[in-house]
């Protein structure tokens, strides 16, 4: 899941966030553009090396990739049907690689470092974009993932407790209402913490 930082002192951890972000973008682009087996193979080896150097526990690394496997379980058969085996395999490998690379980045980079990198990146454009605000938006987006996950889990439990398991309304309505209320509270708390413009 996004936003889990695995602290460490490896080279991958210590590399500047801006550099990591740049390399991530570059490699994902190359993987997306060049479907040759050599490129995909090299990228796979790179991911394994990075995970090893950063000493990311295998179970943690695996848990980052699992969600995308569910997507593939649906997407691969469709792709086989329309594009054949080869295209399906290339697509699957590319997706897994992109997710794994992004996971290596989030696992080894504190969000604060990403925010600082974003601000450095946006500094030349400060007349047009407020880097602080972009950073804040990014932090809030990351914050919302576990918040929303908790919310859905609580509402699912409450729905089960009331025996309304099948009802989509009994899921959607409380989730939306509570998400909006949470957004309200979060906004208020940000104002109180001095982020009020």
């Amino acid at each position: 899941m996004i936003g889990v930082f695995h602290p460490g002192t490896s080279l991958v951890h210590r590399a500047p966030a801006l550099l990591k972000l740049g390399l991530l973008t570059l490699i994902v682009t190359v993987v997306a553009m060049a479907p040759s087996p050599i490129v995909l193979g090299a990228a796979s080896v790179l991911v394994i090396v990075l995970v090893a150097v950063a000493r990311i526990p295998l179970r943690l690394a695996w848990s980052q990739v699992v969600p995308i496997l569910w997507v593939l379980a649906v997407a691969v058969p469709v792709q086989v049907l329309f594009g054949g085996w080869e295209a399906a395999a290339v697509m699957a490998v590319r997706l897994v690689l992109a997710v794994a690379l992004a996971a290596v980045y989030t696992l080894t980079t504190p969000v604060t470092a990403t925010l600082d990198a974003m601000q450095a990146l946006l500094r030349p454009f400060r007349r047009w974009v407020d880097a602080d605000r972009v950073g804040l938006a990014l932090a809030l987006t990351i914050r919302c993932v576990p918040l929303l996950a908790d919310l859905v889990r609580e509402v699912l439990e409450a729905r089960r407790a009331r025996g309304a398991e099948g009802s989509l309304t009994a899921l959607a309505v409380p989730v939306i209402v509570r998400a909006l209320r949470t957004a309200d509270h979060l906004g208020e708390a940000l104002t109180a913490r001095g982020f009020d413009d």
Binding site: G3, V4, F5, P110, V111, T112, L115, D132, G135, A139, L140, I142, R143, L147, T182, H185, L186, E188, A189, L190, A192, R193, G194, F195
Partner: peptide, 27 residues
């Protein structure tokens, strides 16, 4: 004036404990 809310969940913004404390000082 600092403000502490009833439900800390609505107040915590950053992913880790240290980052959330540091977040206040960004401004």
């Amino acid at each position: 004036v600092g403000f502490v809310f009833t439900n800390a969940d609505n107040q915590i913004v950053m992913p880790t404990v240290r980052e959330d404390v540091a977040f206040t000082l960004r401004r």
